[in-house]
């Protein structure tokens, strides 16, 4: 892991610590409060704060997870080198696209 990847993983961990907490707390609050899926979507629809929050969440996760997965794979398998790095870039893009698509779908269903 280069110092840049190390710093990127630590910085995104800071964002994720807050984002995951907010995400879980909001989910539990909304469901226990008796809101239906339709009522939740009515609140998220067009809410730019909601979109910005989840876009940041998704970007942080898409950077954080592949760096960690790369380390795990390097330690537990013999996979090394450029093919591993390219696979992790692909994994990053996959999370990014799927995550942003989901966040945008809830913002504008």
């Amino acid at each position: 892991m280069t110092p840049m990847l190390y710093l990127a993983q630590r910085a995104t961990a800071l964002i994720l610590a807050v984002a995951v907490s907010v995400h879980l707390a909001t989910m539990i609050y909304a469901v226990r409060g008796g809101l239906s899926a339709g009522e939740i979507l009515a609140r998220t629809n067009g809410n730019r704060w909601f979109l910005a929050f989840y876009a940041l969440f998704v970007v942080a996760a898409s950077i954080h997870a592949p760096i960690g997965l790369r380390s795990v794979l390097r330690e537990w398998t013999s996979w090394r080198g450029r093919s591993l790095d390219l696979a992790m870039v692909a994994f990053c893009l996959l999370i990014l696209v799927l995550g942003l698509r989901a966040a945008f779908a809830v913002y504008r269903p």
Partner: peptide
């Protein structure tokens, strides 16, 4: 001391 063999591992 940086890189995959270095302190960050």
């Amino acid at each position: 001391v940086s890189g995959d063999a270095g302190c960050h591992s």
